[in-house]
Amino acid sequence: MTVPVQAPARDARTPIAGSVTRADALAQWCEVRYGLPRTAGEPGAGTGWVVTEAFMTDPDRFGAWRATLADWLRAQYGAAPDRTTGGYVMSWYLGAVGLLGGALFHQSRRVPSLRPSDVAIHVAEHDRPHVVGLAVLADGFACLPDDPDADHPAATVVADDHALAALLRARFAAHASRFVASFGPTVRFGRRQLWAAATDALDSAAWTAGLLAGDEAAGVADSALLLPAKQDPFTSGSTLRATDAGWTRRRESCCFHFALPAAEACATCPRVCRDEAAGPAA
Rank of each mutant, 00 (worst) to 15 (best):
H106P: 13
P185K: 09
F183N: 10
P145Q: 00
A224R: 15
E252L: 08
V180C: 15
T199P: 00
R128A: 09
L137W: 02
F189A: 08
A173V: 10
S253H: 01
D60H: 09
A176D: 14
D222L: 03
L226G: 01
P8H: 12
A263M: 10
V136Q: 05
P148C: 10
F55R: 14
P261Y: 12
V123I: 15
L36W: 04
C266Y: 15
A197Q: 08
P112T: 04
H257A: 13
L100I: 10
A263W: 05
V32H: 00
W72C: 07
S113F: 03
T47R: 14
S177G: 15
A96K: 01
D147T: 02
M90D: 14
H106V: 00
F234V: 03
P145M: 00
A165Y: 05
P145W: 04
R171I: 08
L114N: 05
Q76G: 04
E125Y: 03
F256L: 09
V157P: 04
L168S: 09
D127K: 00
A245Q: 11
D147Y: 02
V158M: 12
A17Y: 09
V111G: 06
L144S: 02
R10W: 10
A17T: 08
H175S: 14
L202F: 02
A176C: 11
S113I: 05
G210V: 01
C266P: 07
W29H: 12
A278L: 07
L100S: 02
E125H: 09
T239F: 04
G102S: 04
V51N: 12
L168I: 07
A103K: 01
A174R: 13
G246E: 02
Q107E: 14
A9P: 10
H152C: 00
A277E: 08
H130A: 07
A278D: 15
P59G: 08
P8S: 14
A142H: 07
H126W: 14
L94P: 06
L225A: 06
T14L: 14
R192G: 04
V157G: 01
A181V: 13
D60V: 11
R178A: 15
L26Y: 08
E31I: 12
A67P: 00
E216F: 00
